[in-house]
């Protein structure tokens, strides 16, 4: 299963990002292999359609679980249609911290 955490930087030690569509990076973690990779979000500074276009990036990369701070309405519609589960992480911690909390079951599912 692939998990994506929105992040300000490109590694597991980077600070997690609250925003979804404008997140500078998407860190994708493959739970089976343990491998992680960073996708730079081309739409982070774009003007329009940022939410659904970012959602498309996750969908195209086969992500099944998303951990982020908040989702806009249009992104939500796309993510929901794709059947991706969304968990909310609103602290200042790192990607690793967000993952740990997710695995501990202490994050709230928002979608």
């Amino acid at each position: 299963m692939k998990i994506c955490v929105t992040a300000k930087g490109d590694s597991l030690d980077s600070q997690a990002e609250m925003r979804f569509g404008r997140s500078p990076f998407f860190i994708v973690i493959d739970e089976e292999s343990g491998a992680s990779s960073a996708i730079k979000n081309e739409y982070a500074d774009a003007a329009g359609g940022v939410g659904p276009r970012s959602a498309q990036v996750l969908i195209s990369n086969g992500v099944q679980v998303l951990i982020t701070g908040q989702l806009g309405g249009n992104a939500q519609r796309a993510i929901e249609a794709a059947g991706i589960e969304v968990y909310q992480y609103r602290s200042d911690g790192t990607v690793n911290d967000a993952l740990k909390q997710y695995r501990d079951g202490s994050l709230t599912r928002i979608l």
């Binding site: 329009g48 359609g49 940022v50 659904p52 498309q56 249009n74 519609r77 796309a78 249609a81 794709a82």
Partner: peptide, 17 residues
């Protein structure tokens, strides 16, 4: 405008965008 999202086996069009 992000009006089209292509899913695995479906297409979502957000008409208002």
């Amino acid at each position: 405008y992000g009006a089209i999202t292509v899913l695995k086996d479906d297409i979502l069009i957000l008409m208002d965008l």
